[in-house]
Design a protein around this nucleic acid. Structure first.
Lengths: 189, 189, 189, 189
DNA sequence: GATGAATGAGTTTTCATTCAT
DNA sequence: TATGAATGAAAACTCATTCAT
């Protein structure tokens, strides 16, 4: 593992555990076993580190969700695959997601850069979901619901799941299957 | 308006706009038109200010939601009133809610105090919703769904709404009515 | 002496001795016997400290030179008083002058603010000298020389004196009287 | 152009424009289109770079001034050639001169090395001018003035010119010819 | 000769908090 | 109750310099 990667991993873990503002650049250096200066040699600022973390996450998420949508079967099945992918992604990339979710607010104030990334991302998600729903309505697997509004609602549900889990205020029972049922009842014919 | 109230209002507005970490105690003093020392005369620390903001919010929310649940009619109607109250509350207390949502993570790390407040709050919400759902199943207005899991899911949906709105990454269409429909289709008989 | 004054004095002396860049804010605090934070409580930045030093100097210089010009007698006598004032000022305010001279370059890059101060100052000096020369030509005490160019040249001579002394590269003999003679021979009838 | 020359040129230009302290070694590398390490491969330190710039300048200046003094004619004519050479040199080597002038103070604090260079240089200049004045007094082209003090004064005038021009606080009219007249009136018989 | 990753000391600045008035 | 000067710990960032390749 290169020093750059070590720094990125250390930052991801520390940001997830202690928050962006709660993590000093020096701590990242210690955890990554490099000198302080090395952090700033590879990332031009602490914020740039955060941007890098989010950047990678966004890329992987979008490509994953698009792949999920492209599969065979009805519109509902595609939407179901998206929901499943989301749940899996959440498990595999917990720290990065927690960071991206929690610090998004600060980021959007500081740099337009990352805000734009997320803006693009979210709109892409809505688009992908919308086409699944549209397809589902066409093939009869999904009821006659307002396409875009419903896409937003499903997105909101996913966002809520991540928020509740990453804020950790609540010991949540396992909701993944029930979430699918909840949507299925509401959406399928 | 007493100086204490002025400080609380100033803090709420600034925390909402610039984040807790992005707001200096001195800025709060300026905005509230008091001296720096006065802030710490009324609130023993900056964090205490945040706790106060959240505290008040929590009290009002819980009492509001309980009142909504107590009304007449079927379980579903009670649940619907809760959802409506939530939407109204979100509009009336936007800044405080944004603060509480965004800074909840930092708080839970810093002090147990506020974390406990929220923990109690959320469990209360879940309980109230659970009883509505239970009642609804009993009176036939709600399908045979797992009571607690469903309560969690509705909560998650509400949390998602607030997150999406307060983070402001997305220009959302008005979803309030469709959210109700989404739940109605999924839950009612 | 207030802490603010102590800081200003300490900074003047240290800047004169070690240069602006060679002086750490912490050293100023030590020398002024205050805490680091106190420096930034009274001056919003290290550069603002420099600006304050120069500001005061400029004010005193301009008022002194104007008073010198206003006195009675011929134009040459007024010019002579200006030269004498300059020499005296140089002795009384050595440190501040050294600072202002040496750091003027850095300042003019950083802030327009102080650059403008100096710009105004220098033009005022030229104006005052010009009127003395004009008066001298009119009253026959000064030869028929180009008014403004000569004012510039006298200024250049004064600037050269300060530069040579404050840079301290050279052990200069006492030149004050000879400088007056040099100008007298060149300018008087 | 060798890489070493490229580095020296880049440094001269950047130091002149942004000051010694305001110029990072890495910037010099970028401007010279070499790697960071290469700068330190050719010059053992950043300060050594500055010393090199000044060194070359000093050599050229001294040799030029000596050549000017050696020519034929009266002592005043020799002094006039020195003044003219100074004006020409100032035009041809503007950046290096600006650097040497502005950074001389810092240098004299840091290393004795460069301070000594300049000390030798300035004394050489004084000596050369002194002999011109002496010669002029002997051949009747220059008045009976104190030899060394006058040499210093002429030097001070030249220094003032450079200071005023390189600090750039003032939009100066062309003073070269008038400076000669000023001296001529003061010094010649 | 040439490179650029790595270093860590040093700097300015911020800010919550205290306390004498 | 109200003030604001004073504090000092902590933080992000810079940069000359080294060294293995």
């Amino acid at each position: 593992m290169s020093k750059k990667e070590a720094i990125l991993n250390a930052a991801t873990e520390l940001f997830a555990r202690k928050g962006y503002n709660g993590t000093a650049a020096s701590e990242i250096a210690v955890q990554a076993k490099v000198a302080q200066g090395t952090v700033f040699h590879h990332f031009k600022s602490k914020e740039n580190l955060l941007v890098s973390i989010c950047d990678e996450l966004v890329k992987d998420y979008v490509s994953g969700i698009e792949k999920a949508a492209e599969g065979p079967g009805t519109g509902w099945e595609a939407l179901e695959r998206i929901l499943r992918f989301n749940q899996e992604f959440k498990r595999n990339r917990y720290d990065s997601i927690a960071v991206a979710f929690r610090e998004t607010g600060d980021l959007s104030k500081a740099t337009g850069e990352i805000h734009d990334h997320f803006f693009v991302l979210v709109n892409q998600i809505i688009d992908v979901m919308s086409s699944c729903i549209e397809k589902g309505i066409a093939d009869g697997s999904i009821r006659q619901v307002p396409v875009q509004l419903t896409a937003y609602l499903v997105h909101v549900l996913l966002v809520g799941m991540i928020h509740v889990e990453t804020e950790g205020l609540l010991e949540m029972p396992e909701l993944d299957d029930e979430l699918l049922e909840f949507c299925r009842r509401s959406l399928t014919t």
